[in-house]
Every structure is written in C-alpha cells, then in structure tokens.
Simulated scan of single mutants.
Amino acid sequence: MERESNNESLPTDLILEIFTRLPSKSVARFRTLSKYWASTLRSPDFTKLFQAKSSNRPRILFAIERYRHNEWFFFSAPQPQNRYETSLPLEYHTKLSGDVSDFTCSYASGLIYIPFVRIIDVNTPLICNPITGMYAGYHVRKYSKSHGFLGFDPIDKQFKVLDLHSILTIGSGEEWRTKDISCHLYHRSSAAGICINGVLYYLAVTFIGPSFVVVRFDVRSEEFKFIDASCFNDHIQHPTRLSLVNSKGKLGVVSCNYADVDGERCVELCMSVLEDVEIQEWVKYVYTLPHNEVLGSCEFSVAGVTARGDIVLCMKYTSKPYYVFYFNPKKNTLQSVEIQGFGDQLEAVRDRGEVYAIVDYVEDLGLNDAKQLKSSVSDIKSRCACCQKV
C-alpha cells in the first residue's frame, strides 16, 4: 500500500518562527529563493520579530587587529546565559585585509567604522557590517586622516561619523553629506567614543590646563555639549586606561588598577557614572574583583557592561587559551569563560592580534538591506608595498 502524500504545508507563523532562529546570513540567502520569500523575509513584521529574538540572545563581538599584517578579523560568541558556562565557541564572520588603519575601530548599532583603509591607490574611511562583510567607503580631504567616531540616530535611522573636522551623514552612493565643524579648544584622547541612545560621547583634553572634558554630541540635532570630567585628570598621561561604557543607558567611565588583598593581587575597577547630564553629576563606584590567577597576570581591557549589569573584561591579545571575564557587582562574583576558535593563525604569540570587544551585540536584518553598503570586503584590493602589484 502506497503511503499517502501529505500536501499540507507548515503554517506561516511557524515558518517565520523557524527563520527567526537562524543567523542573519542564512536569512539573507533564503531571500534569494523567490520573490515570495524575498517579500516575506524583508517585511517590517519579520524584521521586527527577528530583532526581538536576537535581542534575547545577545552576543559579544570581537574585532581583531593584526597591524603587522594589515588585517582585521571579526568573530562573535554567545554571552553566557548562566554562571555555570565556562567555555563558549566562536563564530568567524569576515576578514578585512590590505593597507588598513592602526586607529581603533568605532562601533554603533551593528556597524563598524574604520578611519583609514587604502583600496588600490585611494585612501578612504570605511563603514562595514562585520557579520555580512558588506561595506562602503568615501573620499576625504588630506587632513581628515584622523580617528573618528560612529554614531546612530534611532529616530531618523541615520548613521553619522564625527571626525576632527567634520560630520559625515551616511547616505547612498554620492548622497553622503559632509558638514565642517571646528573645536579648537579641545583635542581627542585615545579612548574610544561610545554611542548611547542616539548620543555620542568621547573624552577630550583641553589645550588650556590640561584637563579632561566629555564631549556630548547629539547625533540627530548635531549639537555639542561639554561636560566637566576633571575627576579623571590623574589619567591625563595614560588616557588609554579609561574605557567608556553604557551603564544601563548612562555614560560610565572605567579605570583599572591592582590592589593587594590578603597577599593576593586583585583587580580594582573604578567606575564613574554620569547620573545627571544637566547638573553634570558623577557618581563613583569602586569594586575589588575576586582573585583570579589569569586575570591578575594578563593584559586586559574593559569591553563594556551588559544589560543585566555585568562588567565585562577581556584579554587584550588573542592567545590560547583566551578568556573573557564577567563581573557581577551586586553578587561580587567573577565568571571566567574560555572562548575557543580563534585558530592557530591568531593564537600564535608572534602573530597574535589586539582584541576590541563589543558586548550585547544584536543582529539587525535592517543592516543587511542598508542601501549604503554595496560592496564586499572580500573584493578589497591593495598594492603590495614591495612590488607594487595589486
């Protein structure tokens, strides 16, 4: 007896639920199957549903710079869901090679900004989606080779780059708009900027003093506000020791020191949170982390603060083993998580890369459809410094 064929199809709601569990790269590929799937998987309802699901499973994004080889690698890993997780796998996404900048990359709402990339004979800043590998670059004047900061306006859905002399509004093709600015009284410190709820913050040093200020740039209105940060003056000589973080929607500035606790070397974190922008009120918190032999003996940096309040520290260079540390201030607990999968190329001591990590990374399908990102980083070509061949 022949088995009866089942012509019943799966309900659309169930199919969409399945698609929300896939990586954004896979969703993008399924969009090419037919006009029906392209329309369904590009619909605002599905995009919103996918982002909601992705927000419930945030990842940590790793941007790895090997400046000796002019390479950037992008990986991501799940963030631990419970305190018993001690090891998590990496997922490789894309690689950017060529004559690339040695400035720190800047991040906002799913995109990476690299201030200087040489494509064949053209020097260009570059905006890149680290998951899909799509990018766009633009021509700049000579004086614009400076590190800049990427911001995102969540109301108008616009990305803007703030560099030393101008504001660049990211558009499509030749529609990108540049607006000249001037802040002669300040120069930027080497601490990276951070965008929080449509506001870009970065540390600057006054020429008269010197003293720290926090520059607050509203991405939508393009208005500047200067906030006194003289409480960080002890770090004038070493601004790289300061990290800017998103502390539950408020700006936090973190510095790291070492403390001796019962004869053991422990890490001490000092975090100042900007509680009130208008009256410029800072509230300071000091945390002594539980002793950890690895953390106490390695170079590390502060990656950020998760939505649930964990302060995340990561090893500064790729290695084997490589660890990320999650400190919970309320419970005074420190969780070490081994990240596996950088590969022999990055784990070798001679060729190790410097790590820049972004916490609570959420995949956004809207970025895969961004009209301004039309090229693939796999197509980037540059000239060899020795033979000048492409």
Rank of each mutant, 00 (worst) to 15 (best):
A191C: 15
G171C: 10
R188S: 11
L203Q: 02
I208L: 08
L185I: 06
Y186T: 06
N197P: 08
A204F: 07
S190G: 12
Y201C: 02
G193S: 04
I167N: 04
G173Q: 07
K160T: 13
L200H: 11
G198V: 13
E175F: 04
W176V: 14
R177P: 04
H165I: 14
H165D: 07
S182Y: 14
S172C: 07
I167D: 05
S172L: 15
I208E: 12
H187A: 12
C195L: 08
I181H: 10
W176M: 15
S172Y: 15
L185F: 12
G193I: 10
C183S: 15
A192F: 01
H187I: 01
N197Y: 10
C183L: 08
H187R: 11
C183H: 14
I208V: 11
C195D: 11
E175T: 07
E174D: 15
C195A: 09
K160Y: 04
L203H: 14
C183N: 09
Y186H: 13
W176N: 15
S190M: 08
H165P: 02
F207L: 15
H187N: 10
I170H: 04
L168Q: 11
K160M: 02
R188F: 05
Y201T: 06
H165Q: 07
R177N: 04
I170P: 06
H187D: 09
S166P: 02
K179M: 08
T178Y: 15
L164Q: 10
L185N: 14
V199N: 05
G171D: 06
G171K: 09
A192N: 07
T178E: 14
L200Y: 02
I196C: 09
K160H: 02
T178D: 13
A191V: 07
E175V: 05
L164A: 13
F207G: 11
L164I: 11
G171E: 03
L203Y: 09
A191T: 09
V199D: 05
A191H: 00
A192D: 10
G173L: 09
I196R: 00
N197I: 04
A192V: 06
E174A: 13
E175D: 14
W176D: 15
T206I: 00
L162Q: 03
S172D: 15
W176Y: 10
A192Y: 01
K160S: 01
G171M: 12
D163Q: 10
V199G: 04
T169D: 00
F207Q: 13
W176E: 15
K160D: 03
I194R: 01
A204H: 03
A204W: 03
S189D: 00
V205P: 11
N197E: 05
S172P: 03
S172F: 15
D180V: 06
G198M: 01
N197H: 08
H187Q: 06
I181G: 13
L168A: 12
V161I: 14
L162A: 03
L200F: 03
D163T: 09
S189A: 01
Y201R: 00
H187P: 02
A204V: 05
I167R: 02
Y202W: 13
C195Q: 08
R188C: 07
T206P: 04
V205G: 10
D180M: 12
I196H: 04
V161E: 05
G193A: 02
G193P: 03
E175R: 12
F207Y: 06
F207I: 11
L164K: 07
H187L: 13
